[in-house]
């Protein structure tokens, strides 16, 4: 019986040991003069060509992790995956750093969505130019089964919303349900290709915190514009 314990102890210590060596391996080194271009080394040492000591490279993932300080109420806590109209797969936190103006629509909508989309374009038009480049307008489909990235791209082109400041997202059915709940957007499928939904445009700060919601169609958007501009202060 004792032997089993000893064996177990050895195995666990080996596993623990391997863990620590693994984390060290993540650090890579590079010649400060870049004598060999972008070549990196796994161990500390000196450059073969100029003999200077190799410098540790700051890991991209690590800098991201430190910038990961997001608050409790930030939408960047959501880890669901989304497809963009360009065919990329992203998480919401990849939109971090810009003020986000978000709305939920579906492309086969004939009644309110064109007006909602127009409301979004009006907000874009009214924003001062210097703020525009730090603002991302995000349109999320509530009908992810119909609205494929291709459909969203076509919709973007058709509505003159194909610029860099516009992003269209297709999620999973459960991901959309979750996100709608975060936005307090209500929706219901009436029949295939037709949904009822609440008309809400939401503004999020650079950190993903909700700062303003504009409810209704064609409403005065001065308040929304003001709140967007305030996020840059």
């Amino acid at each position: 019986m004792k032997r089993i314990y000893i064996v177990l102890a050895i195995i666990t210590s080996i596993m623990l040991g391997s863990c620590t060596t693994n984390t060290n391996k993540d650090q890579t080194y590079q010649c400060p003069m870049k004598c060999e271009g972008e070549k990196t080394f796994a161990k500390q040492g000196s450059c073969i060509i100029c003999n200077m000591a190799l410098k540790p490279i700051k890991d991209n993932t690590k800098t991201l992790a430190s910038a990961d300080d997001i608050s409790d109420s930030s939408i960047f806590n959501l880890t669901t995956k989304w497809n963009t109209e360009e065919g990329n797969t992203i998480e919401l936190k990849e939109l971090k750093g810009k003020t986000l103006v978000m709305v939920m629509i579906y492309t086969t909508c004939k009644a309110a969505c064109p007006r909602l989309v127009a409301d979004m374009r009006n907000i874009e038009k009214k924003l001062p130019k210097e703020n525009l480049k730090n603002t991302q307008f995000v349109l999320i489909s509530i009908d992810p089964e119909t609205d494929t990235p291709e459909k969203l791209k076509a919709f973007a082109i058709e509505n003159y919303m194909d610029g860099e400041q516009w992003t269209f997202l297709q999620g999973s059915v459960s991901g959309v349900r979750e996100f709608a709940n975060v936005l307090a957007v209500k929706y219901k499928e009436i029949s295939p290709l037709d949904f009822s939904h609440s008309n809400i445009i939401s503004v999020f700060s650079k950190e993903g915190e909700l700062v303003h919601q504009q409810e209704g169609l064609g409403v005065n958007n001065n308040e929304t514009i003001k709140k967007i501009i305030e996020t840059f202060k």
């Binding site: 009644a111 949904f195 009822s196 939904h197 169609l217």
Partner: peptide, 10 residues
């Protein structure tokens, strides 16, 4: 109908 698209159906 300004708040909800298609709400008359419900």
């Amino acid at each position: 109908s300004d708040l909800f698209c298609g709400s008359a159906a419900i």
